[in-house]
Write a protein that binds this DNA or RNA. Structure first.
Length: 517
RNA sequence: GGCGCUUUAGCUCAGUCGGUUAGAGCAUCGGAAUCAUAAUCCGAGUGUCCGGGGUUCGAGUCCCUGAAGCGCCA
């Protein structure tokens, strides 16, 4: 069976779960569910990054061990994901033994390949503030006292900062510049969306500098093999999660590697599109097939921030809306890859027009008529007319086009295509006016029309199942008249036209998406 | 400062290789229908395709230039 490996980033435990984490993880889940329906052997990974100075300091400030702090935040993620119907196959923690083994193995591979060397890392340090600043940060903040780089001052307290030198291991990133450029050029879909690809390309072409990959200033992390006063810095530690979760290095044959897609936020694009491929090249491992950087959400037109206090908390959203509604809105409202705005009026508008009025009402009116005119039982299909054939052709086109969209992570277009199918269904009802057929006693035509309606509803539900697993299992329950599970379906067994048979009984409908007032 | 992107209907956006009358959804207005969650369907549109210049038989599309907004890098 063909495999499919999709990942989210590992989320940093210094931060509570927010809308951004929720967004990436839902997108990954929809891909995973869609591929499972398509019969692929799916591995969907998410997890947390627990290491680093910030977590160590936050733990110290609270007088607890870093692992205790991490445990608390991990619990927040692990309890949130099921509420959002996230179907991840694994959850990787960087503090786990299997991850440490993977990271240290990666280090040794890089070392054996001759791509690691020891040198000194330079930084600026403000003694009173106990804060480290990079030269770039200071220059950006305009902290040059006399315009010369040896007279920097601290952006916070404005006092002079001193240059410190720290022993550090380096990775020869510069040696991979040409190969990375070649790879990006030879694989147009490697980095998506295209605008990000261009950014990365110009960044790499402008010249790569070697990367500092260890620290001695904190200890909460994976020790460098053979030099325990060094801790492996975030790049190698975090990125290697995608392999350690698969059993690297124990498993020589990594079943799911290379990943089909790493979903990431645009803030970590460079690490995934440049550092990670270089590391994999050095370690002589295949590169992921695609890295997709999605955009940011604003809330009611404003940037989310702690100081404004307008950050949307997933738990609060879930009190107001079904997980399915949030999943649908997030993926429908904004093209994946672009920034978007989360507004409650937009959510309500989309919900009412697309889910309540179009999908929900088509289900309701169709099953109501079936109940009213035929006791809920499907009849046999008589002679098909042109409009019936057009409807079937449209369903089949929808299935192909949605598949194409999902291959490109174009969620909003996939949903738009399904909505077009639903509109076609509503048009079909008007064109055929089953109530008139019932009045005329034209049973043969009435049965044919009702059958076509129920079949397209079933196939529409199947396409929407990855997006709204809860609502769509309800929809399928109404159609199939039995309790169903999302994972019992597949495109192979259920995706064809005509699976429902004459004599099949459907349920009396209940509104699936009640209108929001 | 360098590189790149964007600018199209009231709003959000699509528009392939230069080719008939520039499209979709939402919102608005008019009509039809009564199966349905007052949902649905049909119809009507409205356009300085950011400005200016150029290439061409022909430009939303290609080239030059200006403006505004944004991204990455420095």
């Amino acid at each position: 069976m063909e495999s499919y490996y999709v990942t989210t980033p590992i989320y940093y435990v210094n931060d509570e779960p927010h809308l951004g984490h929720m967004y990436t993880t839902i997108a990954a889940d929809v891909l995973a569910r869609y591929q499972r329906l398509g019969g692929r052997d799916v591995f969907f990974l998410t997890g947390v990054d627990e290491h680093g100075q910030k977590v160590q300091q936050a733990a110290e400030a609270r007088g607890i061990e870093p692992i205790a702090l991490a445990d608390q935040v991990v619990e927040r993620y692990q309890s949130l994901w099921p509420e959002l119907e996230i179907s991840n196959d694994d959850f990787i923690r960087t503090s786990s033994e299997r991850h440490k083994a993977g990271v240290q193995a990666m280090w040794r591979r890089l070392e054996n390949a001759g791509t690691i060397y020891k040198d000194f890392y330079e930084d600026w340090y403000c003694v009173p503030c106990e804060a480290y600043w990079t030269e770039t940060q200071l220059k950006d903040a305009g902290c040059l006292e006399s315009g010369a780089s040896d007279s920097m001052h601290c952006p916070d307290c404005k006092r002079a900062v001193e240059k410190i030198q720290e022993e550090s291991y380096f990775f020869r990133l510069s040696a991979f510049q040409d190969r990375i450029v070649e790879h990006i050029k030879a694989n147009p879909d490697f980095i998506a969306p295209a605008s990000r690809r261009n950014e990365v390309l110009s960044f790499v072409e402008s010249g790569l500098r070697d990367l500092s990959i260890s620290r001695t200033t904190f200890s909460w992390g994976v020790p460098v093999p053979g030099d325990e006063k060094h801790v492996i810095y975030v790049w190698i530690d975090a990125l290697t999660n995608y392999l350690s979760a698969l059993g690297f290095p124990e498993q020589e044959q990594l079943k799911y590697w290379p990943a089909d897609v790493h979903l990431i936020g645009k803030d970590i694009l460079r690490f995934h599109a440049v550092y990670w491929p270089a590391m994999l090249m050095a370690a002589d491992l295949p590169l992921p097939k695609r890295i997709y950087a999605h955009g940011w959400w604003t809330v009611e037109g404003e940037k989310m921030s702690k100081s404004k206090g307008n950050a949307l908390r997933p738990a609060d959203l879930l009190e107001q809306y079904d997980a399915d509604i949030l999943r649908y809105f997030l993926l429908r409202e904004v093209p994946f890859g672009q920034d978007g705005d989360f507004s409650f009026t937009a959510l309500k508008q989309r919900y009412n027009s697309e889910l309540a009025n179009d999908v929900g009402n088509l289900l309701n009116r169709s099953l109501s008529m079936l109940k009213k005119y035929r006791g809920g039982v499907l009849g046999t299909v008589a002679e098909e007319q042109e409009c019936d054939r057009a409807l079937i052709a449209d369903v089949e086109a929808m299935q192909r086009e949605v598949a194409d969209c999902m291959d490109r992570q174009a969620f909003h277009l996939a949903l738009d295509r399904v909505n077009a199918m639903v509109r076609h269904g509503n048009r079909y009802v008007e064109d055929n006016a089953p109530w008139a057929l019932a009045k005329q006693g034209n049973d043969a035509r009435l049965d044919t029309v009702l059958y076509h309606l129920v079949e397209i509803l079933r196939l529409v539900a199947l396409q929407l199942l990855p997006f709204m697993p809860g609502k769509m299992t309800q929809m399928l329950s109404q159609i199939l008249d039995r309790p169903v599970q999302a994972d019992e379906f597949s495109f192979a067994a259920d995706g064809g036209w005509g699976v429902l048979e004459a004599g099949h009984q459907c349920r009396k409908p209940e509104p699936l998406f009640p209108r929001m007032e």
